Simulated assay, not measured.
Amino acid sequence: MAASPEAKFTEEQVLWVKHHTPKLMTFAISRPESYRFAAGQFSRLGFRDGEGFIWRAYSVVSAEYADTLEYFAVLIEGGPMSAKFAAMQAGDTVLLDKNATGFLLPERFPDGKDLVMLCTGSGIAPFLSILEQPEIWQRFERLALVHSVSFTEELIFNERLAALREHPLIEEYFDKFRFIPVTTRAETAGALNLKRIPELLTSGALSEALGYGFNQADTRFMVCGNPAMVKDTFQALLDLGFAMHRNREPGQIMMENGF
């Protein structure tokens, strides 16, 4: 006999909601003691919708050891899930699938010295979780996060990333880290401007901004964002001589479409 739908999820409380722009929001929900995930994985969140349910996947922003589960959502006009999120307030309830999933996991790389994380929009979410894991800082000699958005006001995590300098589990390793913001439709101080990530890779501008080169022996890339960005970035990396990582064929690239 198949398990009832209710056996596959828990009902969690919304703890807080923050709207950063009309389209960008973060929120946290309660975390069941039994809920486990690896940094880089995503949850399935849902709501009851009439006689059925509505579900979508969202990467976990929280550290693996956090007491709550935090998420980042981009609201899409006319989207049924976005409408639910737009109206959501602290004290409301959200459905949480009991099983996290996803394979955007840095531990899948068997080697490498430099980890370069490339993302657009909500694709930053899994990397925020990964960067709160001390193991990642201990393993790699250099860490880089490149976050591309359209406009300056969409760079909502800059302060959070800077605060890693004082994170008790990470502060001693922070000098390994470089954050490169990118704005494609605006001039932003301290950012790479008016170019997409694939072009920044191809032209060498990203390597120059980081202060070191990329090579097959040392550099590992993780890519997450909108499908067009993932496709074009993957092609740019292929053109530079890098290969997709597979369990039976180790390579230098892992990628996932952002949710």
Rank of each mutant, 00 (worst) to 15 (best):
W55N: 01
I54R: 11
S62W: 00
F42M: 14
S59M: 02
F42C: 04
A38V: 11
R36K: 14
R31E: 09
V60W: 01
D49R: 13
Y58M: 04
R48Q: 11
F53D: 04
F53V: 04
E64L: 10
S62D: 00
R44E: 13
A39R: 00
A63Q: 07
F53K: 06
A38Y: 02
F37P: 05
V60R: 04
R48G: 02
S30P: 01
I54V: 10
S34F: 02
Q41N: 10
A63L: 07
V61H: 00
Y58K: 03
G52Y: 10
S62F: 02
A57H: 01
E33F: 07
S43R: 00
G52N: 10
L45Q: 07
A39G: 06
E51R: 08
V61P: 01
S62M: 03
G52Q: 10
R36P: 10
I54E: 08
A28C: 10
G50R: 15
A63W: 03
Y35T: 10
A57W: 00
I29M: 00
G52M: 11
Q41C: 08
S30K: 04
P32Q: 08
W55L: 03
R31M: 11
G40E: 12
A63S: 15
Y65R: 08
S30Y: 05
E51M: 11
F27S: 01
E51W: 08
F37I: 11
A63Y: 03
E51K: 15
F37K: 12
E33K: 15
P32N: 14
S59F: 12
I29Q: 01
S34M: 05
G40F: 09
S34D: 08
S59I: 04
S30G: 14
A38P: 07
R56W: 07
W55D: 00
T26S: 13
E64R: 09
R36C: 14
R31S: 10
E64V: 13
F53A: 06
Q41I: 05
S34W: 07
W55Y: 05
F27Y: 14
V60I: 15
A57M: 06
P32V: 07
G46D: 03
S30C: 09
S43C: 07
R31Q: 14
A38G: 05
E51P: 04
D49S: 15
G52T: 06
Y65G: 02
R56V: 00
T26V: 09
F37H: 11
A39C: 12
T26D: 09
A28N: 03
L45A: 05
S59T: 12
S62H: 02
Q41G: 06
Y65D: 13
F42A: 02
E51F: 11
